[in-house]
Simulated assay, not measured.
Amino acid sequence: MLSATVFLRQVAVLPALVLAVVAFKPVSAHADEGFPFGFEMTLETAPQPGSKRLPTLEIGDNGEATLELWCKGGKGQFSVAGNTVIFVPGPLQDRSCPSARAQADDDLVAALGEAATWKRQGDLVSFIGTRPLRFRINTN
């Protein structure tokens, strides 16, 4: 009878032990290195002359993107598989910008469209193509 009692105690303790192990399982650092779906990022670059504004990119959970550039704004779509990335821009709203800013916006969208791969190092996300772009995830 003693062995049956010991067995039943061990069986009763097992679910609590499993729950404790799962609850205190260390989170993998790799989870922080995934594609930044659901985050807003700011391009690491100098502001355009006469403006403090920096381009931002917000990527939704399904890859839908909202771009707020130096002057223009618009939507697009990201598709990601491993370290491969494809960005398809949508139409941009032309907000009567100075020609230099409008051209910088068009160049930035073109560079995102030409990016073939991406990598993440902490809060920095790089899109690598003919012109590498580096964004910082907004953590504030």
Rank of each mutant, 00 (worst) to 15 (best):
F7Y: 10
E64P: 00
I86S: 13
A16I: 07
M41F: 04
L43C: 13
E40I: 01
L17R: 15
L54H: 06
D94S: 08
R53C: 02
D106W: 00
C97W: 02
T130L: 13
Q48P: 01
P15V: 09
E68D: 10
V13R: 12
G63F: 05
A12S: 15
F87N: 03
G82C: 05
A102Y: 02
L57P: 05
W70P: 01
V6I: 14
A116G: 13
A115K: 09
A4M: 13
K25L: 09
N138E: 14
M41V: 09
N138C: 03
I128R: 05
G74H: 01
W70E: 03
K72Y: 00
S99N: 08
F78L: 10
E44Q: 15
N140T: 11
P49D: 14
D106E: 11
C71L: 00
P98W: 02
V80M: 01
A65E: 13
D106R: 06
T5Q: 10
K52P: 06
C71P: 00
K25W: 15
A46Y: 14
G122T: 04
R136I: 01
P132I: 00
R9C: 15
P89T: 08
Q121F: 01
W70I: 01
V85R: 04
A81Y: 04
G82H: 04
A100L: 09
V109L: 00
A12H: 08
S3C: 06
E44K: 15
L67E: 02
D94M: 03
I86T: 14
D106C: 00
P15R: 04
P55S: 12
V88S: 11
A65S: 15
F39Y: 09
E114K: 15
L69K: 01
L67F: 09
L8S: 13
A115P: 03
D123G: 02
R9H: 10
V6L: 14
V85D: 05
P89M: 09
N62D: 13
F135E: 04
R53F: 04
P98K: 08
Q121C: 00
C97A: 04
E68W: 00
V85N: 05
G34M: 07
P132L: 00
D32A: 12
P89C: 09
L133G: 05
V80H: 03
R95S: 07
P15M: 10
A4D: 15
A104Q: 09
Q103H: 11
S79Y: 08
G38M: 02
L112N: 07
K25M: 06
M41K: 04
G60N: 08
R53L: 10
R53S: 11
F87C: 05
V18S: 10
S126V: 00
D107V: 03
A100I: 08
M1R: 12
R136P: 02
G113K: 02
A110D: 14
G63C: 11
E40M: 06
N83V: 14
R9M: 14
L14H: 06
F24P: 01
E64I: 02
F78V: 11
K52S: 11
P26C: 12
W118L: 10
F39A: 09
P26T: 11
D107E: 14
S28A: 15
A111P: 09
T84D: 10
G60M: 02
D123S: 02
G38R: 02
G129T: 13
G76N: 12
V88M: 08
R53A: 13
F35S: 07
H30W: 08
L108I: 08
L57S: 10
A16L: 14
D106N: 09
